[in-house]
Design a protein around this nucleic acid. Sequence first.
DNA 1: TACGCAACGCGTAGGCCATACGCAAACTGG
DNA 2: CCAGTTTGCGTATGGCCTACGCGTTGCGTA
Lengths: 246, 246
Amino acid sequence: MPDDIADELPHALNVLWGRAKPKGRGRTPALSLERIVAAAVALADEEGLAALSMARLAERLGCAPMSLYRHVAGKDDLQLFMLAAAPGPPPEFGTAPADWRGSLSRWAVELFGVYLRHPWIVQLVNSPPVDPGQLAWLDAALRSLGGTPLDPRARFSVVMLVLHYVRGAAQLLTYMTAEPEEGADGAYAALLTELADPGRFPALAGAVEAGVFAPHPEAGPDDDFRAGLDHLLDGVGVAIERAARA
Amino acid sequence: MPDDIADELPHALNVLWGRAKPKGRGRTPALSLERIVAAAVALADEEGLAALSMARLAERLGCAPMSLYRHVAGKDDLQLFMLAAAPGPPPEFGTAPADWRGSLSRWAVELFGVYLRHPWIVQLVNSPPVDPGQLAWLDAALRSLGGTPLDPRARFSVVMLVLHYVRGAAQLLTYMTAEPEEGADGAYAALLTELADPGRFPALAGAVEAGVFAPHPEAGPDDDFRAGLDHLLDGVGVAIERAARA
DNA sequence: TACGCAACGCGTAGGCCATACGCAAACTGG
DNA sequence: CCAGTTTGCGTATGGCCTACGCGTTGCGTA
């Protein structure tokens, strides 16, 4: 256990991994890290990431802005805590589930739900995960492929592929759905209808004409996501069969 | 041509689509929109999106900060212009290329290169594309599938799948590569080695032990990207064969 | 040739923001 | 009851975006 590494890490990491020193002496805290993070998550959920400022967060907590800095080293620290706490635990399955497709699919669908509930997560991810929460999700995804003949590098590649897709699809759906100002539902479709000149963008104009951007009534919004996910998992299946033959 | 729509659009869109009114009367401009956008792109390329402020941009252009607002309605406007200009034109192929896989693969690889050259694009994308530059890329991707039996909705789904993957892979590679401070190359690997407790994260610990995060010497950095892209296109191939049989 | 006015560049100022620093208050173990 | 420790917070600084309005410039026209 090289502590020299821990010393040069951000404060937040040492707290997240349970390496913070216990204290019990002084004044009774009116604030706690959990309360701060929970309030920050709620604020970001309700009003968006741009509305999350230390001042507004303190206002919501009924304290002075500078009080927050006793529990959080800075705004980056706070966002790291939010990222670790908001997703919750990943779905449960064993180390080598027999049905890789079902497991990985469930993982993807649940993560998709997390991103829809907390759209700010997608805008916030700047670096590879280093907190227990995100690593637990990553581990679960890797475990879903534990029963397949894929080698470790291929498993990681597949997981990243699914992760990128889930993130992108959630971001797209979030921005297509959440525009309660003005036309709302079909605003982007209407805009594209006017902008997609058939001479300049023939394929795009064709897609618009075919109603790709119009909301289809008989299907839920997850439907497009599931369709793309099926394409993706078909490709993974091909890779698995190929690896099994070798 | 419903001009009533154009009136409620951001100023930047009307400029981008050539709908701005021509002016020729007043003082000779020392600044131009092209110079401003080019300088902004260069600044973001060199020092990152966080370093792009109106003040620093003006400093680089040798003008006062407020002068920029004569050509750009605000910072959001400027970023929209940057997004439209930086990628350049998409690769060229006809309306229905015979080799969909080669075309789409080339599209993906070139877009990957764009994201590596301009990493800020990934952090900046907040809404579906509405500018000619991004719509040209989207149209090119849809055209690459023009010779396949996929219906329009499936084509769009496939294109989004590839787009999300390219974006995610570029973001990941950017953050893995660009850490010239301290340990650099293997910093994340070393950190994971310590954090990935085999009891708590068995699959992740296995991946670390197998050297998934260590930079492999005999391959270029694009190699992981191409491998994932192949998985993905295998899945698209399955969908195309299925559609051809129906 | 001379003028008017449209478009330009920019100075000022105000409102947000994150946060470094230091002090007063409150609680607890001895 | 006291000393030590930890918390809460007031003040202040420097950065950011940008609304507003003024002086300046040079083309089009008379």
